[in-house]
Design a protein around this nucleic acid. Sequence first.
DNA 1: CTAACTGTTATATTATAAATATAACAAAAG
DNA 2: CTTTTGTTATATTTATAATATAACAGTTAG
Lengths: 136, 136
Amino acid sequence: MIVHIDLESKNPIYTQVRNQIIEGIAVGKLRAGERLPSVRAMASDLGINLHTVNKAYKQLEKEGFLNIHRQRGVVIAPEGIAKADEAYREALWHETRPIIAEAVCRGVSEAEFIEIIRTTYRSFKKGGETNGFGDH
Amino acid sequence: MIVHIDLESKNPIYTQVRNQIIEGIAVGKLRAGERLPSVRAMASDLGINLHTVNKAYKQLEKEGFLNIHRQRGVVIAPEGIAKADEAYREALWHETRPIIAEAVCRGVSEAEFIEIIRTTYRSFKKGGETNGFGDH
DNA sequence: CTAACTGTTATATTATAAATATAACAAAAG
DNA sequence: CTTTTGTTATATTTATAATATAACAGTTAG
């Protein structure tokens, strides 16, 4: 799992780490049960502090993406990622709303906007192979 | 123009103000050339500080949504909002990417995701009447 | 049995961003 | 002339982000 940090980004480092791990899961590069580097190893790799990585891991655990065991290490949720519930869907609506509003103002057509979404979506879902999370 | 502030939001107040003004423009509630309340009036209305409103206005000006004249006040860009350029489109790709990745992880189908986008998009574009920005 | 490694906790410091509080300035409008 | 406008300046408070050490308690490997 290769994570790249942009120190110039407006997003905090721990958010960048979080997002890239989620992308790794989405694209199937990280699979259920797979182990992630320890907070120290990851921090050392990226040249950042242990606590910054820990913050990303903790958030991912809280969001249901990871399981963290005291001495067993950090693992992609083996029983699968928590499926979308109503709370998540509502957050999704709120999150996308201002982005769409700005696109409308800037004259981005519905077709173009959806094409961007669709292309990105498929870039994750492609490879089609299961991410390891069947809906059991 | 009614702006509502959520003090519990993770988004800073000035960002909330910014987003709601953009939504106002998108939905056509705010039209080109229309005047916005002075920083003091808006701040007083919302019970917040003058500088917080000013920060939102300044950002909107920088982004091309507003024109601010020394003593003439704050006005929705009369010559129309800056159309999407390549820089904006690239930002749009980056902005939506992590949101889509998480949706994929949570099992939101492409169809459902796009339906959310489409519905929100049309909630802005609806009314269909021109926003006052023809493509001249 | 050590020694190394795991996440965790604690404490402290630095830097930056967000928000507020006053105060004053200069130009335009009433 | 007074009010209103955005602007600038200074200061303070609070919260977040990131780093730096240090230690603890189990787990695992040699």
